[in-house]
Amino acid sequence: MEGYKMYQNLKCEYFPCHKIKNVEIFNCMFCYCPLYLLKEDCGGNFVYLDNGIKDCSNCLKPHGEHSYNLIQSKMETILERAKK
């Protein structure tokens, strides 16, 4: 059983915080995406705003059915960047 890889906060006033077709597979575990730190190589659908801020509003990478495995596969890189 891998229930620890999926979490939904149904009481959250923003749930779901992105427009999706199937709410049942929306994963809230990574409400704040750890991939944000990876800038261009995060693998998500993002844009940079005019002020240089990374806007991830259109990205569902951290909320997908397999988001736990994706993020765990990049944790070593995330931790290395966080040290800098």
Score class of each variant (00 low, 15 high):
M1V: 01
E2F: 13
G3R: 14
K5S: 10
K5C: 13
M6K: 15
Y7C: 01
Q8M: 10
N9A: 07
L10K: 11
L10V: 04
C12I: 03
C12F: 10
Y14S: 04
F15Y: 14
F15R: 05
P16C: 12
P16G: 06
K19T: 04
V23Q: 03
V23Y: 03
E24N: 02
M29C: 14
M29Q: 13
F30M: 06
F30Y: 12
F30N: 03
C33W: 03
P34I: 05
Y36L: 02
Y36D: 04
E40K: 06
C42Y: 00
G44P: 12
N45E: 15
Y48H: 02
L49H: 00
L49F: 00
D50M: 06
N51Y: 06
G52L: 04
G52S: 01
G52V: 03
S57G: 15
S57V: 00
S57A: 11
C59G: 11
C59H: 04
L60W: 07
H63G: 12
H63N: 12
H63C: 14
E65T: 13
S73D: 09
K74P: 00
K74G: 02
M75G: 03
E76H: 00
T77V: 11
T77K: 15
L79T: 11
R81W: 09
A82V: 01
K83A: 11
K83D: 02
K84H: 03
